[in-house]
Computed example of a mutant assay.
Amino acid sequence: MSPEYATYDDSKLASLLIDRDRRAFAEIYSRYWPILYKHAFRMLKEENESEDVVQEVFTKLWQKAPSLQADISIGAYLYTSTRNAILNFFSKNKVHHAYLSDLGNFLDQAQEITDYRIRERILSKLIEGEIEKLPPRMREVFELKRNQNLSYKEIAGVMNISELTVKTQMNKAISTLRNKFGNHLPSFFISL
């Protein structure tokens, strides 16, 4: 860098920057980078993010240089750009954290639902296995009630037995299943 650029004031450097003078840009960079970095670090408390924010500010400064106004205050422009970049970082980071949090919750819930459904299927198979082990008459009474939702009177008519026998067989079937599965027996079976 030419030593004379170090003697230029900000307005002279700004006018050279507008004309795409690389040495003017380098001088502005060396003048303001440490100040902007300290400000960004005070806000972000993270070296890499602070460096990224300041680098982004200078990249945009170079890209927008030809469209800057001639009377621009470089210091104010850079400070405002840094503040806005920090706010954007916070906003993106907040959205990013919210997204990750929501995704984590979704995955946790999906895992719980999947685990629940697997356990439900296993329990259902175990219950079906125990129903198959019931004595034939008891199983038939139980399945007519469960599968066809027949009343005790209707079951008695179908099987040609008394309603009292149907009720006794149902109570024994439910009692047998409760003894095997306790609280895990779905409430549907209990209300039969």
Rank of each mutant, 00 (worst) to 15 (best):
I113D: 14
L87Y: 14
I118T: 08
F58A: 00
N48T: 13
N93S: 14
Q69N: 15
N105D: 04
Y79Q: 13
A98W: 15
L68H: 06
S101P: 06
D108V: 04
N105W: 01
I127E: 01
I72Y: 00
R146W: 15
N105V: 00
Y37H: 13
K153L: 03
E130R: 07
L44R: 03
I118M: 10
N93H: 12
E140Q: 15
D52K: 11
V95K: 15
L61R: 01
L134M: 04
W33D: 08
T114N: 09
I86A: 03
T59S: 06
K92L: 15
I127P: 05
I72Q: 09
A40W: 08
K145Q: 05
R42N: 14
K45L: 05
W62Y: 08
L103D: 14
Y37E: 05
L100A: 04
K45M: 12
K153V: 04
D102K: 10
A76P: 08
D108I: 00
L150V: 00
Y116P: 01
K153A: 10
A40V: 08
P66S: 04
A70F: 08
L107P: 08
N48M: 11
I131S: 05
S50N: 03
E56V: 04
E51Q: 02
D52Q: 05
E56H: 10
A85V: 06
S124G: 03
F106V: 09
P136Y: 06
S91C: 11
Y77I: 05
N88I: 11
E132H: 13
L87V: 11
S50F: 04
L44Y: 04
A70P: 13
V54R: 08
E154Y: 02
E49Q: 14
E112Q: 13
A98Q: 15
G75A: 12
Q63L: 12
R117C: 13
R139L: 05
Q148F: 13
K64C: 01
R83T: 14
G75E: 06
Y37G: 03
V53F: 00
I155C: 08
K133D: 13
Y37C: 06
I86V: 11
N147C: 11
S81Q: 06
N147R: 11
V53C: 02
P66G: 07
T82A: 07
Y79L: 14
E130M: 06
V95Q: 12
L144S: 08
N149W: 02
E51S: 10
I86W: 06
G104R: 14
A40C: 02
Q63M: 12
K133V: 06
V54L: 05
D108A: 08
M43D: 01
L126G: 02
I118E: 04
F89N: 09
K38C: 02
G129W: 03
V57I: 05
L68K: 00
L150S: 02
L150G: 01
A85H: 03
E49G: 02
Q148V: 02
I118Y: 07
P135Y: 01
E47F: 02
Q148A: 10
R121Q: 14
E128H: 04
R83K: 13
Q63E: 15
V141G: 02
E47Q: 13
G75Y: 13
T82D: 02
S101W: 02
V95H: 12
Q55K: 12
S124W: 09
F41G: 00
A85K: 07
E140W: 00
H96I: 10
I118K: 08
H39R: 12
F90V: 03
Y79K: 14
E140K: 15
D52W: 01
N84Q: 11
V95W: 12
Q111V: 04
W62Q: 05
N88T: 09
